[in-house]
Design a protein around this nucleic acid. Structure first.
Lengths: 199, 199
DNA sequence: ATAATAAGTAAATGAACATTTACTTATCTT
DNA sequence: AAGATAAGTAAATGTTCATTTACTTATTAT
């Protein structure tokens, strides 16, 4: 039996992300992808059932999976609130700015019904993404450190300003992210943290 | 001369938004739109130069324009920070939940290069969207009420949690937004406000 | 060495795409 | 009432789409 060429599989994924980031999800086609990856369209179908299957696996396994891992790196749920949030922010910022093509697909996950529904399904079946973060926040609520609000609200307060900032400076034309200084990032994180804490 | 049928123009716009919200931007086609609006594809081209032209005008003029107007309704720049933010939040929340199809396109404005670039161009040429909000924030910085951070950072801190919350409960399957209670919304707004204020 | 077999290719399939052509219709001006 | 004309339609254009068919190739187990 002829073995799989893993390099080709990786090329499919990374080039798909690149096309999505540069031209948009609406301009990704199987033939364009195959041509850019220097393979036959049929090869993609050996590895993925359909275009939707490719997009969903790319989103859930490659992008969200890697993002989650990066965010949770060295994160200890038992740390205090302020330092815990700071670590999560630093981890997320480092990953997102170093993986801008992946970030583009994360953004599409909020707009595209296909990806959004896939995420919700995965979140229910496989257990929540970012479970340690949710446990961390729950413990902070119990300890009376932060406001008593639903999980989703905490998640929105905690991460959405960071994603929005990164998006602001990611202009689809591949300009480098350089405008967010460490000082600004830190103060921004401080603002988010302070707001979430009990008055 | 035969006059324009404005009802048809409105149908094009509202049905385009509906398709984008329900099936995604990547699944909107001119033929599908024409069929759903009960018109000939050619009619769309009387009113819009191309598909891109339609999408950009829909995004900039219809959706963002109306959103801006709604957010700024009865907003007085000279109000105090806490009450000003609360009014902006209430206005934005009311508009977004009442216009979910428009909201879907707003979300795509953060992912799609076509829309994102159109927004940036418009922001430069026509003057900033939400200028009164920017002046309001600038005045608050000068008065020492809030932290001294770049405009974009303020904007991210102020609005992105709200958009994220609305998105969370807008599931592309047309379920009603009912989980965000007024109490939660108010406390969330309070958190955002408090975080932005000078320590 | 060679048979077995999955990985891979080139080219084709029919459907759907954005846009246009050739024509008809409704309304305004006269 | 009739002519001018832009709005509108039905059907076609050539292109690109997702996916498949028919075939070739590289590798492993024998």
């Amino acid at each position: 039996m002829r073995p799989r060429n893993e390099a080709k599989e990786n090329a499919i994924r990374s080039i798909a992300l690149e096309i999505i980031a540069k031209e948009g999800l609406e301009n990704l086609s199987m033939q364009k992808l195959a041509k850019a990856a220097n393979i036959s369209p049929r090869t993609i179908y050996i590895k993925y059932e359909s275009k939707d299957d490719l997009l969903i696996k790319l989103f859930i396994n490659d992008v969200l999976g890697a993002y989650e891992q990066a965010v949770l790196k060295d994160f200890n749920e038992d740390i205090d609130f302020v330092n815990g949030v700071q670590q999560l922010w630093n981890n997320a910022f480092a990953y997102l700015t170093a993986n801008r093509h992946a970030f583009a697909l994360i953004q599409y996950g909020k707009s595209s019904p296909l990806l959004n529904n896939a995420f919700k399904k995965e979140n229910i079946i496989q257990g929540q993404f970012f479970a340690p973060v949710h446990r961390f926040l729950e413990a902070q609520v119990k300890a009376g450190t932060i406001r008593n609000l639903p999980q989703d609200v905490h998640r929105a307060l905690l991460f959405s300003p960071l994603l929005d900032l990164v998006n602001e400076y990611f202009d689809h034309a591949e300009r480098p992210v350089q405008i967010i200084t460490q000082a600004v990032l830190k103060e921004c994180c401080e603002a988010v943290t302070k707001g979430m804490m009990k008055p």
